[in-house]
Design a protein around this nucleic acid. Structure first.
Length: 424
RNA sequence: GUGGCCGUAGCUCAUCAGGUAGAGCACCGGAUUGUGGCUCCGGAGGUAGUGGGUUCAAGACCCAUCGGCCACCCCA
């Protein structure tokens, strides 16, 4: 059946996997709460223009990865490819940033990018994100990195991740570096690989990432980005690095780390892992002091980052263990044979659910012999089966059968059931 | 968008000089009357991703298409 198929790259998260998601999400929620961040819930659809202006129209995301469409009023909309732009929009629109005060927010939800799916990459994927508005000191970066580190530790993946960090200076220093780099590379343009040739005119900074040996050779004599970073940014970065050292957070300065979104300035960082194949970034972010003023007559410093939930789930799962954390184990399975018994069974089930809320009570749905119902009870992993048939109806008793322990089954008067169960 | 590998029962896979498909697990039922787990017996379940082509004959060969995986690209 062709129609019973999900869209490419948009996968179902099956019941057996949901436990892992809930675990990752609850760790995130808990830690963000403890650091004093508030949740904000944002729409999945925004004006396409929002992303063009914030992420940058020359970027891959905007150029070829957005789900863009016209709605019935001919408005050009798109499915959000990331969370920061929408968060900035919301913060400006709702007047959440006041001069001189700091706003700390987090959000969670699906993002959409039209890319070829592969390990760790889907067209619909889930992110958790953090944004802090209104403070330009390195303390913000530091707090976010500390909070990341705490998340890794809570998920027991701290040994599997590394922090890569860099500064890309302010807008002016980036501009002058780009002109310098471009004019240098222009001289060798014939020897560059095809991708890099193309990027020479679109996004020269990206050439630094080229995997081509010849291109890398050319780059070895290219002007150094570090020399172009403005003094303030450099100082900012050094201060951050010193603080990280002081706090014992290992990091690696990666001069080639240039993020693919235009809104960043100064600090950029990525937490990566080698466990996930080619898509090793589990969290990426940085500072974007200039973005708010693009949508507002005010300006505000800002830092943020986003976590890939699927990738974190894969990572925590690659550690084995906690799979099926919240899988379908039950406490009680109720078996009924006959119409009157069924009514009695429902009564008992509801009664237990009211009186012992922490228990998971399954009731056999549909008919079946006692034997087949007991088989199901066994498969449900229930500890106890309650059997109710004509005999039980007649005697106003229920039969308790212990499925995991070597105990005699017993008969309990219906009115005594709860107190008997509470003793177990 | 590009490249490599792959697509047979719910799942994992076999079948392969091309002659209209099998196993294990799972599922359902039974082994004397209302009792699970172990064992034994039986049953159901596949137009071999889809569409063309080659052939007397194709799951097996060719082409296309869709999908999956992995990589490039880029990123979470």
């Amino acid at each position: 059946m062709k129609t019973a198929r999900s869209i490419r790259g948009m996968t179902d998260i099956l019941p057996e996997e949901v436990g892992c998601y809930q675990l990752v999400e609850s760790v995130f929620r808990d830690i963000l709460h403890r650091y004093g961040y508030d949740e904000i819930r944002l729409p999945m659809v925004e004006y396409a223009e929002l992303f063009k202006r914030s992420i940058g129209s020359e970027t891959d995301i905007v150029e070829k990865e957005m789900y863009t469409f016209l709605d019935r009023s001919d408005e050009l909309l798109c499915l959000r490819p990331e969370g920061t732009a929408g968060c900035v929009r919301a913060v400006v629109q709702n007047g959440l940033i006041n001069q001189g005060s700091i706003k700390k927010l987090w959000y969670m939800g699906p993002m959409f990018r039209y890319e070829r799916p592969q390990r760790g990459r889907q067209r619909q994927f889930n992110q958790m994100g953090v944004e802090v508005f209104g403070e330009e000191s390195t303390e913000v970066e530091l707090e976010i990195l500390l909070l990341c580190d705490r998340i890794w530790r809570n998920l027991n993946i701290e040994d599997l991740v590394q922090l890569e960090i860099n500064t890309i200076g302010d807008l002016d220093s980036r501009k002058s570096y780009v002109t310098s780099l471009t004019s240098y590379l222009q001289k060798y343009s014939d020897d560059l690989d095809d991708d890099s040739k193309r990027r020479l005119s679109t996004n020269p900074l990206r050439i630094l990432d080229s995997k081509d040996d010849k291109t890398q050779k050319i780059l070895s004599n290219a002007p150094n980005f570090t020399d172009f970073v403005d003094h303030k940014s450099r100082g900012h970065f050094e201060k951050l690095c010193n603080s990280l050292e002081g706090l014992g957070i290992p990091y690696n300065v990666n001069p080639a780390l240039v993020r693919g979104l235009d809104y960043y300035n100064r600090t950029v960082f990525e937490w990566t892992t080698k466990e996930l194949g080619a898509q090793g970034t589990i969290c990426g972010g940085g500072r974007y002091d200039g973005l708010v003023e693009k949508f507002s007559n005010k300006s505000s410093a800002a830092v943020g980052c986003a976590f890939g939930i699927e990738r974190l789930v894969m990572l925590t799962r690659s550690l084995s263990s906690q799979e099926n954390q919240l899988s379908s184990v039950a406490d009680i399975y109720i078996i009924a044979v006959g119409e009157e018994a069924r009514m009695m069974a429902i009564r008992c089930a509801e009664n237990i659910r009211s009186e012992i809320p922490s228990w998971r009570v399954l009731q056999n749905l549909g008919a079946g012999s006692i034997k087949s119902q007991l088989k199901r009870a066994n498969k449900s992993d229930s500890k106890i089966a309650i059997i109710i048939g004509p005999e039980e109806v007649a005697s106003k008793c229920v039969t308790l059968k212990f499925l995991r322990d070597d105990l005699e089954q017993e008969s309990v008067v219906e009115s005594q059931l709860i107190s008997r169960l509470k003793d177990i």
